[in-house]
Amino acid sequence: MALVEREHIDERAGRLSEATAGDFIGLLKPRVMSLVVFTAFVGMVLAPATPNPLLAVISMIAIAVGAGAAGALNMWYDADIDAVMSRTAKRPVPLGRIEPGEALGFGLFLSVFSVVILGLLANWMAAGLLAFTIFFYAVVYTMWLKRSTPQNIVIGGAAGALPPMIGWAAVTGTVTLESFVLFLIIFLWTPPHFWALALFKTDEYGRAGVPMMPNVAGKAHTRRQIFAYAVLVAVCGVLPTVLGFAGLAYGIVAAALGGGFVWYSWRVLRDGGADKNAQPEKALFGFSLVYLFAIFAALLCDGLIARFGG
């Protein structure tokens, strides 16, 4: 079925669409972009330097555009998969609102534009990281890993974890242990977040031909992996306090959030197979979104207090 959808999409590739501005905005994955911008901004605030406000704003715009470019390239290539999954079927390419060629050209243009602007106005370290992020998400993850290995999310999660490091580099021109810890929090968070989703979307991933962990290794193995990663996330979440670039108040918040993440993951491990409606998995998926936002919001508050409060 996925092959039929791909052929149907390719047949439309030579025709121009009547897409609206809203369709092109949807192509940028605005919800994912908002998370990228937020975590990159946190990295910028925590960095041990004060950027020029105008250049900081321009840098954030460039990072947002780069994230949108990666999303557009992903939607171009994954249109056949998107068309057979309820979560993604209403995206603009599978709906025919935007032609595949338009999505590809749009994504490539924004990729080059964002990297060049960030390099010229911030520094080329940050620009190089942004270029690598786009390449890794669009080529390494989307074109290779997603369709070939159940470790797709584990390895591919690096792309989504790089924004705070890019924000840090945009201010300092360097990559440090502190920025790597910010990267590590998101990197370790990604597998349990997406595997929780995959547990109650197993049939859809199977129809789409995506080898997610529950489809390949089984749900019981996936639940054990989720719990193991949750423990790592909880430990990593308190590292900013342990390493001294966040305060005790942040550490307490991070420990509480990490405890919640472990608890929800334990419920999935303990009760997931017994609940036909996948309520533990859905609860974990929802909490994981809260966790990532809250942990970076706590980092942001801690960084702002350290910068302006004393």
Rank of each mutant, 00 (worst) to 15 (best):
Tyr77Leu: 10
Asp82Gln: 09
Ile25Glu: 02
Phe106Ile: 04
Leu55Pro: 01
Val37Asn: 09
Arg15Ile: 12
Arg12Tyr: 04
Gly43Cys: 09
Leu28Gln: 12
Arg87Asp: 11
Phe24Ile: 09
Tyr77Cys: 03
Phe106Leu: 05
Ala64Asn: 11
Gly14Lys: 13
Pro100Leu: 04
Val65Ile: 14
Ala21Lys: 13
Arg91Met: 12
Leu55Val: 04
Ile134Tyr: 04
Asp78Trp: 06
Pro48Tyr: 08
Leu130Ala: 10
Leu46Ala: 09
Phe41Gln: 02
Val65Lys: 05
Tyr137Ile: 07
Pro92Tyr: 14
Leu28Cys: 15
Gly22Arg: 14
Arg12Pro: 04
Ser86Arg: 11
Phe38Gly: 01
Met33Trp: 01
Ala69Trp: 06
Phe38Ala: 03
Val57Tyr: 12
Phe41Gly: 04
Val32Ile: 13
Val93Cys: 10
Leu120Asp: 06
Glu102His: 10
Met75Ile: 08
Gly119Glu: 05
Leu95Tyr: 02
Glu99Trp: 02
Asp10Gln: 15
Leu118Asn: 03
Asp10Tyr: 13
Glu99Leu: 04
Val115Met: 01
Pro92Asp: 13
Leu73Cys: 07
Asp80Pro: 06
Ile81Lys: 13
Ala83Val: 10
Asn52His: 09
Met75Asn: 12
Phe38Pro: 00
Ile117Met: 03
Met33Gly: 07
Leu55Asn: 08
Gly107Lys: 10
Leu54Gly: 03
Ser86Pro: 06
Phe41Leu: 09
Leu46Pro: 00
Ser86Phe: 06
Leu121Gly: 01
Ala21Gln: 10
Thr88Cys: 06
Ile63Met: 08
Ile58Trp: 05
Ile81Leu: 12
Met60Glu: 03
Phe41Lys: 00
Met60Lys: 05
Thr88Leu: 06
Asn74His: 14
Arg31Lys: 15
Lys29Arg: 10
Ala40Pro: 06
Asn123Cys: 01
Thr133Ala: 14
Leu35Cys: 10
Ile117Trp: 01
Arg12Gly: 05
Ser114Gly: 08
Ser86Asn: 13
Ala122Phe: 00
Tyr137Ala: 05
Leu95Gln: 15
Pro92Ser: 15
Ala70Tyr: 01
Leu28Ala: 15
Ile98Met: 05
Ile117Gln: 03
Pro92Trp: 07
Ala131Phe: 04
Lys29Pro: 00
Leu16Asn: 13
Ser86Val: 15
Met85Asp: 14
Ala127Gln: 02
Gly22Glu: 02
Gly26Arg: 05
Gly22Gln: 09
Asp80His: 15
Met33Lys: 01
Leu118Tyr: 00
Ala122Pro: 10
Ile134Glu: 03
Ala19Phe: 04
Leu129Ala: 00
Ser114Asp: 03
Ser114Leu: 06
Ile63Phe: 03
Ala19Val: 01
Trp76Arg: 14
Leu35Lys: 07
Gly101Ile: 04
Asp23Lys: 12
Ala19Asp: 09
Ala19His: 13
Asp82Tyr: 00
Ser114Ala: 15
Leu104Thr: 05
Gly14Asp: 10
Gly66Cys: 08
Gly26Val: 04
Arg91Ala: 11
Leu121Ile: 02
Leu35Asn: 09
Leu129Arg: 01
Asn74Val: 11
Val84Leu: 12
Ala127Thr: 00
Gly14Cys: 08
Trp124Asp: 02
Ala69Lys: 07
Ala21Trp: 14
Ala127Trp: 00
Leu121Glu: 08
Ala70Val: 02
Ile63Trp: 03
Arg91Val: 07
Val93Trp: 11
